[in-house]
Design a protein around this nucleic acid. Structure first.
Length: 879
RNA sequence: GCCUGGGUGGCGGAAUUGGUAGACGCAAGGGACUUAAAAUCCCUUGAGGCUGAGUCCUCGUACGAGUUCGAUUCUCGUCCCAGGCACCA
């Protein structure tokens, strides 16, 4: 045994190396070492710079799927990379453990949601460990644990105190047969997914969070989230949907009632010829009484309650309305406007009433045509006869006001403000801002969620549960009911209680909270997950938060991320945190897709049910020819899913990780390919063999780090290639998280190492090879942590310490070459190329370009008009 | 429908402050090794063309226009695909 120093100043020991790459042996070995050493456990350390890396935590459905694998692999590479860069990295994992699937599974399999959930958590934790992810498992949390939701309930009480939580009314999908509320996804073509009966809209009293109080701030900060993809902030801006306009008051004819409308187009007021109310509008009832139309109106409102609210928003949804027998007065023209109820008017937006200007709004135009209502043009482009406007469709462009009293002739944009001012002066209306964003309805009439900590008392009304009585524990001894109805209502031991105020008999609130509530603060909880005197330890949160890099699916671009931003603001205003934005940088990864396969008899087929002859799939059940469908997001319903466990058994975690990263950049969708996985496996074998081949020789030498001039050309070339690779990989990871190009750079280096004809008897050359080998291991360490640990050990380094080794630095002097390859274009078409020294002046370059034989064929006999020289790149000759 | 992305070889993808289109990998074909196969290693591979098979020519980044010496990249229009649309998470 001999000892040789290397550049890392570690003592090297000769290590034997297996002939074959065997992930089944290597991967459990290192996972055990990491676990035993608690290698990824972290604490606050003021002396070190922190890096909080977070991936969206999973719903414990039972098995991890490829979407999780991709998400967590991307995160793990960044976490491991940042550790190698010296950061104190917080990388936690936990479970978004409340939610509907647990209840559905419980009903279907006669289990308990809690038992089902915890069994799933155990199974998934096992799978994540097999993937080799570097989590601090001591921080694991599950949101269904009372120790977690206790603090959510505490926050709810604080929000209630401040008026940030309140009770209001809203509509839900209701199935009369099942006596239950349905999620949108449980409504199939207007019918209940369980019993097939029609679903109607039912008004319920529910709890809300006043997110609209923060609409303006959330919107404003969209511009400041520079570490977020622009598409996400754009989607959030659109979701908040700020519009500036006016609120206008219309007098109902022959009544004291008035109708307030919000409009973004006060400039079109002279063209408002009728009024549309939402079917739920409070005035519908009173205005239609005594008109003889009551029955019709009631029937229409009833029929509208069968239309889903989301459908009603679609622009191509059939517009329907009904005259309710009342008129209101256009305050500017004094003309009578018939009042309609219409399905496209939504109670949730603006005031629930729309002043309809058919000439200048397409929806109103369609409606007016359908019901024969007046169309009055009030905006007209210059030099166009008014008669030509709004004949076949609404005119929605800008123009000059016509038929608009004292405002006629004004530019319509300018008129918006002038007319609004006129409203204010004459008390007809006022400037107004409206948001599309609605308050966050958090009530769920479900069992498997965090109970809302309030008590309803006959005499005291709604009373908050006193803080000392928290948590309100979700009872586990319940019978889940067929049809999905929450059993809490009928669980006497839970519901029946005493009023904290008067001591009399009272009922507990049986609604539970939306699961988005749990996921709106879990990232803070991770900072001190066992803290038991508050939501979190403020000093731990002060050290770790905000999250430096958050990673998750783009499907969460709006709701989860917006709710989390809102919650952080609420916490800030309570003085619990000192920042507004929880996530400094955001990476939204694309979906994992695969082609679908369908059998004419058995429908969609799982991959394991499919047999291939060449490209032609056959149904494994009936042997008929199956058809290959579109490439779609992997989903159980389409059965185009790959079980990560099967891949782990066959190839090991490193190969799966490598494939996920290599096949596409993170933000794009990733198409599944069995051959691609095999390619990844082959590459790892290739590295293994390469190092095995040089193992004996390079163990005896130091990694080369001397001057370039000491090397022969072959060695210089490899040394330079190695540093170029370090540079490329560092830039690709650091700046863009483009692991696919980072990996391809390493592949190029490995190819060069195979091809090189280094004189390995020369110690410097052997040292260059050792340097290349070590660089490959270090550069790939975050991506394929198991094989690289093994190879690192085989090179004689301290076992298990690769994950805390330093990321390699590139040497500037090794990157630069003293010649440049220039290309020559004639009129933009490539005609030749040449090498020239880097310091050549422009005239020399031009001369050389013009001298090129092929170039001369295209320039001879023509006038050279211009020669464009782009430094270090090309020459374009214009003839 | 609205909002947001995306469309490049047989396939996944690479190249964007406008400057060599197709890196790297997969698949396919050929060769070496082997009694043979697997594995491995090497070579070829966008399409088409050719009195000089070349350091050659033409076409080519969804489609159609435009700006430019030069466009996968910028602008306008069209088509197609995907994600979100408020109780799935």
């Amino acid at each position: 045994m001999y000892l040789v120093p290397c550049t890392l100043n570690l003592e090297l020991k000769s290590q034997p190396m297996e002939n074959r790459y065997d992930p089944k042996r290597i991967e459990p070995k290192w996972q055990t070492v990491w676990d035993a050493n608690k290698q990824f456990k972290v604490d606050e350390d003021q002396a070190r710079e922190k890096y909080y890396l977070l991936e969206m935590f999973p719903y414990p459905s039972g098995k991890i799927h490829m979407g999780h694998v991709r998400n967590y692999t991307i995160g793990d590479v960044i976490a491991r990379y940042k550790r190698m860069r010296g950061f104190n990295v917080l990388h936690p994992m936990g479970w978004d453990a409340f939610g509907m699937p647990a209840e559905n599974a419980a009903i279907a399999n006669n289990t308990h949601p809690a038992a089902w959930t915890y069994a799933n958590i155990d199974a998934m934790r096992e799978q994540l460990k097999r993937m080799g992810y570097s989590y601090d498992w001591d921080r694991e949390l599950a949101t269904c644990a009372p120790e977690y939701y206790k603090w959510e309930q505490w926050l709810f009480l604080k929000m209630l105190e401040k008026g940030m939580a309140y009770q209001g009314e809203s509509y839900v999908n209701w199935c009369e047969t099942c006596q239950t509320v349905l999620a949108n996804e449980q409504v199939e073509a207007g019918n209940c997914w369980r019993c097939g009966k029609p679903v109607r809209q039912k008004k319920l009293t529910q709890w809300f969070f006043r997110i609209t109080d923060y609409a303006e701030d959330l919107l404003e900060y969209c511009h400041k989230l520079t570490g977020w993809p622009e598409k996400v902030t754009t989607m959030q801006k659109n979701w908040i949907g700020k519009s500036i306009g006016a609120e206008i008051r219309f007098q109902v004819e022959g009544s004291d009632e008035t109708i307030d409308v919000f409009t973004t187009r006060p400039d079109t007021i002279f063209g408002a010829t009728f009024m549309c109310l939402a079917p739920e509008h409070p005035l519908v009832n009173s205005l239609s009484r005594g008109t003889g139309l009551e029955n019709e109106v009631d029937a229409f409102v009833e029929r509208m309650s069968l239309q889903s609210r989301s459908d009603r928003l679609l622009d191509n949804y059939e517009k329907e309305g009904l005259f309710i027998g009342a008129w209101c007065i256009n305050p500017m023209t004094g003309l009578r406007m018939p009042v309609y109820i219409a399905n496209f008017a939504l109670m949730e937006y603006g005031t629930g009433a729309v002043m309809s200007v058919p000439a200048h709004d397409q929806r109103d135009f369609d409606f007016a045509k359908k019901y024969g209502l007046d169309i009055v043009v009030v905006i007209c482009p210059k030099d166009t006869p008014v008669e030509r406007i709004a004949q076949t469709e609404a005119y929605v462009e800008d123009g000059v006001l016509v038929n608009s009293g004292q405002f006629t002739g004004m530019d319509n944009k300018a008129a918006q403000e002038t007319i609004t001012d006129y409203f204010e002066e004459n008390k007809l209306g006022k400037k107004a801002v409206s948001y599309r964003l609605r308050d966050w309805g958090i009530s769920r009439q479900r069992y498997w969620g965090a109970p809302i900590p309030v008590i309803h008392c006959e005499s005291c009304g709604t009373v908050p549960v006193p803080e000392k009585d928290l948590p309100v524990v979700l009872p586990e001894d319940v019978d889940l009911l067929e049809g999905g109805r929450s059993p809490l209502d009928t669980t006497g031991a839970f519901v029946n209680t005493t009023c904290p105020k008067c001591g009399g008999p009272a009922r507990r609130e049986t609604d539970t909270m939306d699961t988005f509530v749990e996921s709106s603060w879990y990232f803070e909880r991770y900072c001190s997950p066992r803290h038991d005197t508050g939501m979190f330890d403020t000093s731990a949160v002060g050290y770790w938060m905000p999250v430096d890099q958050y990673i998750g699916g783009v499907e969460h671009a709006v709701m989860h991320l917006l709710y989390s931003r809102y919650f952080t603001r609420v916490l800030k205003d309570m003085g619990l945190v000192d920042f507004k934005e929880p996530f400094t940088r955001l990476l939204t990864q694309g979906m994992v897709c695969k082609e679908t396969v369908q059998c004419p008899e058995h429908g969609f087929l799982y991959p394991e049910e499919t047999r291939y002859e060449g490209d032609q799939p056959y149904c494994g059940i009936c042997n008929q020819k199956a058809t290959v469908g579109r490439v779609e997001k992997m989903s159980k319903s389409k059965k185009n899913v790959i079980d990560p466990n099967v891949l782990l058994d066959e190839y090991g975690a490193d190969t799966v990780r490598l494939f996920c990263l290599f096949a596409a950049p993170p933000e794009r969708s990733l198409e599944w390919s069995e051959q691609g996985v095999e390619g990844g496996f082959r590459f790892l074998n290739r590295i293994w063999r390469l190092i095995k081949d040089w193992h004996e020789t390079i163990q005896k030498v130091k990694s080369f780090d001397g001057g370039m001039n000491e090397l022969d050309d072959t060695a210089k070339e490899l040394f330079s290639k190695t540093h170029q690779t370090i540079h490329r990989v560092t830039v690709d990871i650091e700046e863009r998280f483009h692991f696919n190009t980072a990996i391809s750079a390493v592949m190029e280096l490995v190819n060069a190492m195979y091809a090189t004809e280094l004189d390995m008897k020369n110690p410097d050359s052997a040292g260059v090879m050792r340097h290349a080998v070590q660089s490959v291991i270090l550069l790939l360490a975050p991506v394929v942590p198991h094989i690289t640990e093994e190879l690192w050990e085989a090179l004689g380094n301290e076992p298990g310490k690769l994950s805390s080794a330093w990321w390699p630095e590139y040497r500037e002097d090794a990157l630069v070459s003293d010649t440049r390859l220039m290309v020559v274009q004639v009129n933009g078409k490539l005609r030749g190329r040449f090498e020239i020294s880097a310091d050549a002046d422009e005239d020399t370059i031009k001369e050389k370009a013009l001298a090129d034989e092929n170039v001369r064929r295209f320039t001879e006999g023509r006038d050279i008009k211009k020669i464009i020289v782009v430094k270090d790149k090309l020459v374009n000759i214009v003839v």
